[in-house]
Structures are given as C-alpha cells and as structure tokens.
Amino acid sequence: MREEPGGPDGSFEERLKAARGRRGLDDPKTPKGFDPKGIESSPMGIGLRVGIELVAALVVAVAIGYGLDWLFGTKPILTALFVPVGGAAGVWNLWRVFAPKTG
C-alpha cells in the first residue's frame, strides 16, 4: 500500500486520482468533456453551419438597411448598401468559426 503512486505523501488530489485509477473510475481513453469544435464536424453539420451563418448575417443586414430606408425615406439605397456589408459580415462570421488557431 505504501509504495503506490501518490502514496500518503501526495496531495489529496493525487491520492484521489490514484484511488480512482485503481478502481477504474477514470477511463484514460475517454477525454474529459468533449471538444466543442468537434461536435459539428460532420460534413452535413459544417454545411448547415456555413449556410446558417452566411444567411443570418445577410438577414440582419437587410433588415437594418430596410429599416433605415424606411426611417429616412431613401427607399432602395441603404438596403442595397447593406447587402454587400451583410455578405461580408457573414464571411467574417465564418472566418471566426473556421479560422486556423494561431495561439
């Protein structure tokens, strides 16, 4: 008993970990919690995500443009202006999601 890893000298956490390991309570193969980036990594999940992010930004932009047009009475101008901006915001959304992590 005395020679076990994390013996009586170890901290409580170490001893608990060793005890749990002996009982097989901590399965070393299953990582603790699962990767939030991995949950939607199926091709269909990614496709759906891309579509939703792009369209969502566009919907918001068109709504803002239309609302401002209605407010200022400049019917098509601001809507037309906000559509490309919305598209850019959609791409920006996607870049945030799928950008390679650099530190």
Binding site: A56, I64, G90, W92, R96
Partner: peptide, 24 residues
Amino acid sequence: LMVVIEVISYLSRIISLSVRLFAN
C-alpha cells in the same frame, strides 16, 4: 466599415442561434 460589419455579425447571433435549432 469594420465596425458596421462587427455589429451585424454580433446581431446575426440571434438569427443563427435560433435558426440552427429550429431548422434541425
């Protein structure tokens, strides 16, 4: 331009969050 894009991107969370659940 970037501020406008950021604001739109921030607001689009409402749509993307709700549409994802609803559509699925």
